[in-house]
Design a protein around this nucleic acid. Structure first.
Lengths: 125, 125
DNA sequence: GAAAAAAGTTAGCCCGGGTTTACTTTTTTA
DNA sequence: TAAAAAAGTAAACCCGGGCTAACTTTTTTC
């Protein structure tokens, strides 16, 4: 059974973020945003295509499938929750909160992410 | 310049924990504790030996050097802080708190770890 | 519309960190 | 003390996810 790696989640997430703000999302945009080489991005996209999370015609732009968008939004949602928690509750600088959220969003258990959500819900900031 | 990877930090940490409770720490103990194969453990120990963080005579037991012990304690200290925070503040189960702490202890920024420490200091549990 | 620039692709490589298999050394035990 | 068990080691492999170099296709621009 296929399972998204942290790296692939990063790709999905950035495709989602980019497509929210601009219409065209190409390999070059993705590579730049993740600061990886274009061939690295291509490899990752190829896997996501195989998993039907992304679609792309040859030499064309990249689109999330509905399943891909769902997965991407789930990651991005975690990201927002975690960075908000770090920044508002632990008073970590916005920049560091972003960086740390990027790193742990892929590996925190569901239970802990829910714990953070509840905390934010119950505690006034 | 050499930098400890997450994996190597895990090895250092477990050597520290094992040597606190038992006197002998062999390859087999380490491999079991981390649920990896013995050759994997041997490979890692070889690197730690090169970096003078660990010492071992052939076919002998593994010891932390003073530098290795310092590094191991730093990791373990983070681990304790994080798991306590997850369990006591976010009310995550002890088991999950342990698991998640193991995963993020290697990648959280110093700033965030300090943020957690301060939180624990200031908030009565 | 041809030449230059940019975007996309392919092939082949590297490194970390796992694995299994097969072996040697040490320890245990009958 | 000899044989069996356990511990340690070495070699060779796999996989994910990066990279560069070299190439093709598309787009831009003069």
């Amino acid at each position: 059974m296929f399972c998204l790696t942290s790296s692939l989640e990063d790709y999905l997430e950035i495709i989602y973020i980019l497509s929210e703000k601009s219409l065209k999302v190409g390999i070059t945009d993705i590579a730049k945003a993740l600061t990886v080489s274009k061939p690295s991005a291509i490899k990752a996209i190829k896997i996501l295509k195989n998993e039907k999370l992304v679609s792309q015609e040859k030499y064309g732009k990249i689109l999330l499938t509905s399943e891909g968008k769902k997965a991407a939004m789930a990651v991005y949602d975690k990201h927002k929750v975690i960075s908000k928690f770090l920044n508002k509750v632990l008073e970590i600088s916005e920049k560091t909160a972003e960086i740390d959220a990027c790193k742990i969003e892929h590996i925190l258990s569901k239970e802990t992410v829910n714990g953070i959500k509840n905390y934010l819900k119950n505690v006034k900031i």
